[in-house]
Design a protein around this nucleic acid. Structure first.
Lengths: 339, 339
DNA sequence: TTTAGCACTCAATATCTTGGACTGCTAATA
DNA sequence: TATTAGCAGTCCAAGATATTGAGTGCTAAA
């Protein structure tokens, strides 16, 4: 259906539009096209590409702009993803080298680095605890009326919370709590911390419910804690020409402010795959002018967090995805080495 | 210098401008002014107020807009700060009631509540550890190669960090660490965690430097950790008429993105005082069209975090400050009750 | 199948016009 | 002396009109 020339012209148009943010005319393509070719020929092909839904016009006599379908073909079939320089590789290596002491911190560093190299706005969420198994639970007495509860999961996540009491707690009580919690929960999925656990502990230990209840409450909160989005380089987006439109700028801020939308997207998709959402492919209307590219950091089937880029539909997919691929690989290396 | 009528007219103008975002004409003031008064009189007074620097014109035949000096007089002398309704009081009480288990969490809840009631963008930073004294230090062994280090300060702050090792750590070693750290540091200012501490521990314990070094490193990081700004309702600002100007919107995003500016402002000022920064009173150019109002949450001379509002110079100071005063009081009550 | 060439379209920009929302000032008034 | 009516003058905002040029689509020839 699409002969070689049409594919090439489509690629040139998208490349050019990504670069200039202006509708692309047949004359510009003629300039760039190596073999000699007349603008009339290009116009014919453009008309064809438009009929097939890959291009759009902004008005009757304007140049062409890629449609969502056009971008889709472009990223799926026309691009190669090795667009990363030696300097960039060096920079990433240096940034990710060893410095983080927790998975969350490592994810943040990667998120910042990604924004620095691509000049787009990046976001990330930490690992989800759901699906993980409990490796160890520890309660630590702080002062006489405060406990810290710590959960370590099998993929090395550490979550902790503070629990305050109206009465004194003894070290013996804490030791007993540690014993029973670990006895019951070691190796179990983290979701086992629930109301039935409260009953069990209460039955076995006979401690005042005034002690048990707040512990369970806080531990439950801990595992279903709302996820925090880490955001980097929001102002970079405001330098883009599309942000001259107040509506687009507003939509952008809205998306980042109502975290649910981003969380939804970041939490979709499978480990290792790079996911690409182009414009209206998202059904959120605020996202119609943006593309989002995400990837998950994981070990085995355990989620270690997701990192994403949000930028204009006209984003530099080649660079973005190339850099992401490399960062993804580095994160895995890093993890293998450490544990 | 300013007779009663001029003060009243100034107040009406600022009130009106805050409400409408449009330059205020003499006719509008005549409408609002209770005693009969002609527009010519108002015009004379306005000319006078302009000469004194309280008002400005956007062009020769425009209405008047308050200057920074005008706003300053307005907030300092013309406003009363009891602009809070029974519903709002109820709402705040409900939100702040008991739910938080840490100071940081309480501050966040207060920040969100403030944004909900005022419909402005709010920001906060958690308490600074500097200046606090160490009440307790605890190391907890997680697995065999991971420690959690916990510091509790005298005003109840809890800070923790993860330290990973290349070799196994024994519980005995941890117990010894706990003993020596507490022995040396209990009651001491938190800044005592430094290089000389490393020497001391190394001398006393003779543990491999491979164990001591990462501990001290991480604990040091912990106390000088960069402060995190919590942000709420950024999108609310984008509904304001001033955000039709791309430049203003851009400045706004810039401010929130380069955290240093906000941190600087939030960290200035003394406990309990409400600080007001109007437009160019800040010397950061990005802030010239905005006002920031902040207050600190504290107990004694210990900082427990700062909460601020950032909005247009034309913000509803009366509401903002009234609500802040009430929240500030509630936070203190809350704290007194608990500890 | 490709191309030269021309008619046509439309956004972008500049220029002009008009209406009206203001002010400042003057002279009359209390 | 303080206030006010009234009017001339200013300037913005919005709409109307003209101009330009960058683009296309189409036709007919190569």
């Amino acid at each position: 259906m699409l002969d070689e020339r049409k594919r090439k012209i489509l690629k040139e148009i998208v490349d050019e539009y990504i670069d200039s943010a202006e509708p692309v005319s047949s004359a510009i393509i003629v300039e760039k096209y190596e073999n000699n070719i007349s603008s009339a020929t290009v116009r014919n092909d453009m008309a064809e590409l438009e009929k097939l839904g890959y291009l759009e016009k902004t008005h009757t006599s304007s140049g062409r702009v890629p449609s969502a379908k056009g971008y889709r073909l472009y990223v799926d079939e026309l691009l190669k993803y090795d667009n990363i320089s030696v300097e960039e590789i060096k920079y990433i290596q240096e940034k990710l080298e060893n410095k983080a002491n927790s998975i969350e911190e490592l994810t943040k560093i990667a998120t910042t680095t990604l924004s620095e190299i691509t000049h787009y706005t990046t976001v990330s969420v930490g690992p989800k605890t759901s699906g993980q198994n409990i490796e160890e639970i520890k309660f630590v007495l702080l002062g006489s009326r405060m406990l810290m509860g710590i959960i370590v999961t099998d993929s090395g996540l550490v979550r902790e919370t503070i629990i305050k009491f109206d009465e004194d707690i003894t070290q013996e009580q804490v030791d007993t709590l540690n014993y029973y919690f670990n006895n019951k929960l070691q190796g179990e999925p983290i979701e086992k911390i629930d109301a039935s656990l409260e009953e069990y502990i209460f039955r076995e230990l006979k401690y005042s419910i005034k002690i048990i209840r707040p512990i369970i409450e806080q531990m439950k909160k801990l595992i279903q804690e709302e996820e925090k989005i880490y955001l980097e380089g929001a102002n970079k987006s405001f330098e883009l020409p599309e942000f001259k439109s107040l509506e687009i700028a507003k939509n952008f801020v809205n998306i980042l402010d109502t975290k649910e939308v981003m969380l939804d997207i970041l939490n979709t998709g499978f480990a290792k795959d790079i996911q690409i959402y182009i414009g209206d492919e998202n059904d959120n209307q605020d996202l119609k002018d943006f593309s989002i590219v995400t990837f998950k950091h994981s070990v085995g089937d355990k989620d270690l967090g997701t990192i994403g880029i949000i930028g204009p539909k006209r984003m530099n997919y080649s660079k973005v995805i190339s850099v992401m691929k490399y960062i993804s690989k580095k994160l895995d290396d890093n993890f293998d080495k450490k544990d």
